[in-house]
């Protein structure tokens, strides 16, 4: 016998808030949401949250371990690591959001065209996206960076190109399904306008899978940014970035291992948090998801 319903509220009502409840109701979902919220706050309010100027050099306090003054210690130039992480969050989330945003825009546009347009267009776009997906991502990114030089816009372009096929696939499939779905035809039979069809029937059914994909993609994007920065091909110093910090920490890993650890921490933490958020979001958004009790 299994019983997991102790916390289930009585009525079927309030299903509107059920998604949120299901998201926060599981321990992993709640913790992941909390961590993600913390990252977002750190990014938005970086100057307020960070105890020091991230670029203030302090030659006297170089490579200090964690202390009351510097919670995570300082790096080889005496900069406060915590402040650098906080500002690095800004960089990471900025790139993650603009990158996935651009990928979403491109992927969604292609998906809509493929789903609503003719068969030939559809086949061509599917082929294009499959080819992009089969490119080795890191080599591709390095190639682009060597040609165009390392910069934030270059990074975003790389991310958008490599992530777009994921959105393309989701949007195309969803549009194909929705196009022929009986409930769409039913709304048409009631005389619904195109606008109404799109806004009240299509969009709500598209948004769930996309949100999940975004949450799942963000850690990948952070990984790409950190990876490229680590290789010296991403964000250029002195701008704080987790990848840069990791790379610097790596240089001094013998003398001051805390630098590398402090830089690795947010990468690992954000990856785990966003992945779990994505997974719980997927379950929460799809109440039908059949799972044994």
């Amino acid at each position: 016998m299994t019983d997991q319903t102790a916390a289930a509220p009585r009525a079927v009502k309030a299903e509107r808030h059920a998604t949120l409840r299901r998201l926060l109701g599981t321990p992993t979902g709640a913790v992941a949401s909390l961590v993600v919220a913390a990252f977002v706050i750190a990014a938005l309010a970086a100057p307020l949250v960070a105890p020091y100027d991230p670029n203030a050099i302090d030659p006297i306090n170089r490579m200090q371990g964690p202390s009351a003054a510097h919670w995570l210690g300082t790096d080889q130039l005496g900069r406060d690591l915590l402040s650098r992480i906080v500002f690095g969050t800004r960089t990471a989330l900025y790139i993650a959001l603009t990158g996935t945003g651009a990928a979403l825009g491109v992927g969604m546009a292609m998906g809509m065209i493929a789903g609503l347009g003719g068969k030939i267009l559809d086949s061509a776009l599917v082929l294009l996206n499959d080819s992009i997906k089969s490119l080795p991502l890191v080599l591709f990114a390095l190639a682009l960076v060597t040609i165009y030089g390392a910069s934030v816009p270059a990074l975003i372009v790389i991310i958008a190109i490599s992530m777009a096929p994921g959105y393309f696939r989701v949007v195309r499939n969803q549009v194909l399904v929705l196009n022929n779905a009986d409930f769409i035809v039913a709304a048409q039979s009631m005389g619904a306008s195109r606008l109404r069809l799109a806004a009240t029937h299509m969009l709500p059914n598209l948004i769930g899978p996309i949100l999940v994909l975004i949450a799942m993609d963000i850690p990948a994007v952070i990984g790409i940014e950190s990876g490229l920065s680590f290789l010296g091909q991403g964000i250029q110093p002195p701008q704080s970035s987790w990848g840069n910090m990791l790379s610097e920490g790596y240089t001094y890993v013998r003398q001051a291992p805390h630098i590398a650890i402090a830089a690795g921490l947010p990468i690992v933490l954000s990856t785990i948090a966003f992945t779990f958020l994505g997974e719980t979001l997927r379950d929460a958004l799809d109440p039908r998801r059949a799972v044994r009790t």
């Binding site: 779905a181 009986d182 409930f183 035809v185 039913a186 709304a187 009240t200 029937h201 709500p204 059914n205 769930g208 039908r288």
Partner: peptide, 12 residues
Amino acid sequence: FQDAVASLDPRM
């Protein structure tokens, strides 16, 4: 509609 379940918007 013949398929009643499918003719209702799952998110409504």
